[in-house]
Design a protein around this nucleic acid. Sequence first.
RNA 1: GCUCCCUUAGUGUAGAGGCCAAUCAUGCGGGGCCUUCGACCCCGCGACAUGGGUUCAAAUCCCAUAGGGAGCACCA
Length: 496
Amino acid sequence: MEQEAELQRLAPDLLVREKKERVSRLRELDGAGPGFTVRLAPYPSGAPHIGNTRMFILNDEYARKYGGKLILVFDDTIGSEEKFPSLESYTLMEEGLRWLGVRWDAVYYKSDRLELFYSWAERLISEGIAYVCMCSAETLRNMREQGKDCSHRHHTPDQNREYWDMMVGGKYREGEAVLRAKTDMAHRNPAFRDRVLCRISHREHPRVGRKYSVWPMLEFSWAVDDVELGMTHVIRGKDLVMEDMMERFIWERLGITGPRFEHFGLLRIKGVKISKSKSMAEVSSGAYTGWDDPRTWSLQSLAARGFRPEAIRNFILSLGMSLSDIEVPVDSVYSENRKLLEPSADRYFFVGRPVMTEISGLDGEGVVESYLHPDRPERGSRKIRVSGRVYVSSADMDAFAGREVRLKDFCNVRLAPGVSEFLGRENREIQRIQWVPAEGCVACRVVMPDGSTVEGFAEPNVSGLQPDVPVQFERFGFVNPRGMLGDTMLFHYAHD
RNA sequence: GCUCCCUUAGUGUAGAGGCCAAUCAUGCGGGGCCUUCGACCCCGCGACAUGGGUUCAAAUCCCAUAGGGAGCACCA
């Protein structure tokens, strides 16, 4: 304590700096060193959203930390009925990643690598590690439950190779045959009993069409690519630990040393429900305005709200690499962004759901002047021409009608719908509310995070605002100007 | 039910046997700034899930209990 006081006297800047540099740092990873290589594996079924950013940022951040490589691998296998890749999603993904400040060194597409997966599959077949199974999905599940082998498990590698060639040759319909790993049908973890490596799908793929009818499952494709693409580490969510086991099993059988696995726990954001497939449907039907609709929680929508990518990064890094599943209030994200926006966002008056009131007995018209940013007078000021008619928000009217309030920076009135009595100009310690002059105010629409809109008026000065430079509507929140919609100015609401 | 994982203040997080009567952020409470804002600034509040071990010493290692999560898909 004494030392601190002493230091404060001698070199106050030292104290400040120490506090500032205490940014959360990621823990060291075992085995990280030269050649460090990790990958990002987005599935292109829509725009990236805030829930995906943990995987993005942790991989990016570790790649930077160790001066290593970050490979972007589109995990665009054929998916399922509910979850399928789409062409525009590739662009949306890259756009989102770029916005986030993620820098990758190379890009690959799983859909370009089917032949490679096939060659590995054939190797597994010939070494007796995998077999073609013709059980139905239901039979397969039942056998797994009982821990019993099916007859297909005992086919010879040559027989399996024959069936496999028929699979690849498109001789089977979907669901008629799969390639399974011969792990152990009595494995204590029922989920691990002879998992499926490849299955048949005749659906059309946005990049390769109907060229292939056999597609790898996630864990098999990664067992191949984590080795083929030279990963030293795999940083993934802990929902994928079973996939580690599967990859390790394959490598072990083939005598390969694979990368190390690192996991982070699941992240949920309280009050934010994200459904990519729902967003996809609503965007394409037009129910949402597009991928910038706040309800998608896509990175595009966050950009539209005026979020700074660094805010997202700081938020994710503050969570660290913890393995526990967490639920974080959305306020934590907002507060990170607020820290970045607050110093630069100019202040303006906006009234939502406006009601007009006339100031009776006003001592003349004129101009009031306010700072653009009260804490930073050097940013300059703004002027509002005033007369006896102003709008206030209906919320303020409801809350304060009949009471003395100060129209901020202007004058004091006894607030009432219709006509408010003028009470003088001196700055008194009473409730202040925002207002806009009836003449020259700008019609605004603010899109809220839940997709609803608030219509209102803003002071005339907002008409010169640059798009995508966030401002603060006082006592309303931080908003991002998006441009004009006819005579109405469009904003997206960031947070309070 | 089976398998795996997690458990530090309201919410997250730091902490890898003594430096911890425990870090930081957010939240909450109070104050400040005042061309007087729900922003910002300052101060304060608040936690090692429980029970056993191991050790001279445990938030940190081991075991059990409780609570939470994930997986058990021919999705990723």
